[in-house]
């Protein structure tokens, strides 16, 4: 708690107008993540997780509330955080290398310089030799790697990852999770990670924020007491199971409440 908060979301609400009625997607969401921590957000689908990410990424303005990075408001400012969307969204007409340097290219960095920065990263993080391949030639896992490297190379202190491994099979998923943890510990970025896989959240995170169903707000913040670096054995440890049960209880409580309301 001694460290200052890197990113702070205070009282963020978002109300959409649909067919003349107001629909609240987020209500009074608060969260604060310290620098270099890995925070996950879990919650039922449609609880406004993606809306929150859109607001943090500056693609959408909140109806109320504020988002600050290092104490500066970033509401409505796109490009201040690295945002990786659910799909890999690689441009099919570009090679993997050209996809990865897209962010640098947009910033106006000369190609040669961008390539110089991208190549060692690609080599180190399992994409060496795929520079001239096109996205369609790669497996789902490799495409996600490329998409994450693109976000990483965009070089922002905060990474928003919106269910990046949602579409992968279980085995690829686990190796990708380890891969992500490796990158995270190498770069010391502050990560906000959306998932609805409890195992994934516990395995990856320092802090887990549990979202309530729509209108979304933070129901609980839980700190994961498992040390790092984490190994596959941790997935079956009693402590892990305990966390998992606790989170399941929190999530299902939210579900019951939502059903009672509706």
């Amino acid at each position: 708690m001694s460290k200052p908060c890197k990113i702070e979301v205070t009282g963020v609400s978002k109300i959409f107008r649909k067919n003349g009625t107001n629909v609240a997607a987020l209500s009074e969401t608060n969260l604060a993540v310290e620098e270099g921590r890995f925070a996950s957000i879990i919650g039922p689908s449609g609880c406004g997780k993606s809306t929150l990410f859109h607001i943090i990424a500056g693609l959408m303005t909140p109806t109320a509330g504020d988002v600050t990075v290092d104490g500066q408001s970033i509401v409505g400012k796109a490009g201040t955080v690295g945002y990786m969307l659910q799909k890999d969204l690689l441009l099919p007409w570009r090679t993997i290398l050209d996809n990865i340097i897209l962010g640098l290219e947009i910033r106006g960095i000369p190609r040669a310089q961008a390539v110089e920065r991208a190549l060692p990263l690609m080599k180190k993080y399992g994409l060496g030799g795929f520079e001239t391949h096109y996205p369609t030639e790669l497996s789902g896992g490799m495409r996600q790697r490329a998409a994450l490297l693109r976000t990483l190379l965009y070089d922002r202190d905060i990474l928003l990852l919106d269910e990046p491994f949602g579409a992968l099979d279980a085995q690829t998923r686990l190796s990708m999770q380890n891969w992500l943890l490796e990158i995270w510990s190498d770069f010391g970025k502050t990560v906000l990670f959306v998932t609805h896989d409890i195992d994934e959240a516990v395995y990856l995170s320092d802090d887990i924020y549990v979202f309530s169903p729509r209108p979304g707000h933070i129901r609980a913040k839980i700190t994961v007491p498992i040390g790092r670096p984490r190994k596959a054995e941790d997935l079956t440890a009693p402590r892990f199971m305990e966390m998992k049960h606790h989170l399941l209880d929190l999530l299902s409580a939210g579900q019951v409440q939502a059903e009672e309301i509706s």
């Binding site: 990424a57 693609l59 796109a78 490009g79 945002y83 969204l89 897209l102 962010g103 947009i106 910033r107």
Partner: peptide, 8 residues
């Protein structure tokens, strides 16, 4: 959306 999030 991706392009905008990359500051394009």
């Amino acid at each position: 959306t991706l392009m905008v999030s990359l500051g394009a």
